[in-house]
Design a binder for these strands. Structure first.
Lengths: 154, 154
DNA sequence: CGGTCGAACGCAACACGTTGCAATAGCAAT
DNA sequence: ATTGCTATTGCAACGTGTTGCGTTCGACCG
């Protein structure tokens, strides 16, 4: 097993973005509570996409008393700080992007259920098309576009 | 008010597509029930988009005993026959296109809440971009893309 | 016209997400 | 350490949509 030093290994996620959260909250007149700490601890371990439901159950693993409404409200706050971004999966349920870097759209194959990310260049083409049409400024990351992937159409 | 004969006026909707529904259902081994008749009668009066909730309440105006699960299940059947198509609004709730003609995507402005349809040519550009990228065959009508309209972005 | 089969119904329970409100508890100031 | 303000919590209730199950009734057949 060579070269293990050359790349980050799976569970070696950069969590530094979360370190300043308590301070940022207080600076905005908000509060750092045990419930928020639990959620942030859970988010530290995640990259990419998570459903709200999964976050709630992971929080409950750490704290039996976790309440859904608190989690949803905390996620709203974290979204205002740009630490998560929510979107809707193909079935309309909420999904969260943790530490959204470059925003990207999502594709969902109705046949096989797999998901893909839209490449930045392709996403840009979509954004440009809608900007040219109606002057619309699209937030691609908010939705999942449905269809059939190459392997599944016909 | 000249030329009123030259176009269909607003409440003169072509409902002929619904006339064959009982026969089509029976031909497929399915049944024509009073509950389905109520929903189809409601759908006859609609064009464009309706939320599932609105359909349920309109059915209840005609039949107090209408049950949500029956309406949802009937909508699924009608969708298989191509008479309605469901999508998700910006907040993930279900919307139905009645008698979907040319499929079109939707835009939702997060600031002012208004909605637009994506013009066919623009929609085609989006479909083409994703086909070129991953060979993905997109069903644009299923989702509502969020963003900010011309009047609302700065 | 009555019998049979199973599609469709209504209900009850669940899942996900939101909201209003009274009680709690951060946190800044004293 | 105590106090006061108010952000946050937890609960309960609601809205929307789905699912399982026992019962009903549509439709075809004799």
């Amino acid at each position: 097993m060579p070269q293990v030093d050359e790349h980050l290994i799976d569970d070696d996620i950069d969590t530094s973005a979360w370190d300043g959260v308590p301070i940022r909250l207080r600076a905005a007149g908000l509060r750092w509570t045990p419930q928020r700490r639990t959620l942030v601890d859970v988010l530290r371990e995640h990259q990419g996409h998570v459903t709200a439901t999964e976050l709630i159950s992971r929080c409950r693993e750490r704290d039996q008393t976790t309440t859904p409404s608190t989690v949803y409200r905390t996620l709203d706050v974290l979204e205002e700080f740009g630490l998560v971004a929510h979107g809707h999966g193909h079935d309309g349920r909420e999904e969260y992007h943790v530490l959204p870097g470059e925003t990207h759209g999502h594709l969902y194959c109705e046949a096989c259920g797999r998901q893909w990310e839209i490449r930045p260049e392709t996403g840009a083409a979509i954004v440009d098309a809608l900007a040219a049409d109606l002057g619309f400024e699209v937030d691609l990351s908010h939705v999942t576009i449905s269809g059939h992937c190459q392997g599944c159409h016909d």
